[in-house]
Design a protein around this nucleic acid. Sequence first.
DNA 1: AGCCACCGTTCCGTTTGCGGAACGATGGTG
DNA 2: CACCATCGTTCCGCAAACGGAACGGTGGCT
Lengths: 199, 199
Amino acid sequence: MVHDSPMSARPATARSSPPPALEPGAEGVGPRLRHLREQAGISLSELARRANVGKATLSGLENGTRNPTLDTLWSVTAALGVPITALLAGRPAGVMRGTAVEATLLQVFDDDTVTYELYRMVVPPGAAQHSPAHHAGVTEHITVFDGVLRAGPAGAPLTAHPGEHISWRSDVPHLYEAVGDHPVHASLLIRYPRPGGAA
Amino acid sequence: MVHDSPMSARPATARSSPPPALEPGAEGVGPRLRHLREQAGISLSELARRANVGKATLSGLENGTRNPTLDTLWSVTAALGVPITALLAGRPAGVMRGTAVEATLLQVFDDDTVTYELYRMVVPPGAAQHSPAHHAGVTEHITVFDGVLRAGPAGAPLTAHPGEHISWRSDVPHLYEAVGDHPVHASLLIRYPRPGGAA
DNA sequence: AGCCACCGTTCCGTTTGCGGAACGATGGTG
DNA sequence: CACCATCGTTCCGCAAACGGAACGGTGGCT
């Protein structure tokens, strides 16, 4: 399931970006701003006046036709009395969904020899999710927050209760499944050794 | 979390902010970026390559001589694998700094019986950090990404190499320390059982 | 020593976000 | 109805953020 990280944390060689136009997380900024402004009950013109920015700027910003500067964002959010993060905290990009697993990418760690991807994972009760083998050397590490999880190699799954930690080599087919009728919340760490790396 | 109703109070007289030149929160962006980059252990040139931005842009950004575009911020933070708020949060409630540990809050999981906090942690070489006991029942779980970490109860610390996982009950004084001369990168999960909870 | 690779900064032409002004649309008022 | 204020969008010249190239400085290698 988790092969390509959706974030643009591509290592090095990602040369000319073809058509990204607008970054993934940026697309929600306009609607969020409009929502915040309407919630505050003021017009676009009024907000432009208070924030000392042009109406054109604000209009373009709400409609997503501009790529605002940090200064502009500060001015606008300050005039609205909200933290600047209210505009940007859409949702940590990188949500992945399978038949029985939803994983949100929290963090990528990348160095010469290995890449780690850290996810928050939710497994609803009822269904089991099977995942094909990853490349050789890839390992998965799970810490269960809540619920009871059975996961690991398809032939010999492991079981983890809240607070417990399990890990396995994921170069064989493996599965994830909630035990009982509670959804399972857990952190999932996938470790990808770099093919040529010494690790 | 992101909900704080922004100003239920009537906007009323929140008159124009005079001429703030540079907004208060903006001045820290450059240093924060530089710090994050150095923490990731990559050069300015390398980050510019990965993020597909010009070195001039990045240099000016770190030195505070530019007023970056939202697009630029997205590119840079994505290449670093950190949320964009890491650059903007004056005090995002999430960064802790001790004598030898810096931890960034990535995720909070909260239910009736237990709270989890998930951090990304960096321990520079050289110094050791001691931490007082937490409440009874609190446990800490660490997965090391890079470097060698010695951590755990002050009397019986554990050692973890890249890819390894350690955990301990933190209701006694404990410590964190990098072994060798490489900084340690790790994820830190702290589990707080709810006092009254059945967990 | 020379050479080379890479570092971070500075210069420069191009691109684009910026505020101000003008625009048509809408609603309230006499 | 005319009049007028305000709405959000569009047009436009200017300032500045952008990426690429050149720069001097530093460390590793032969």
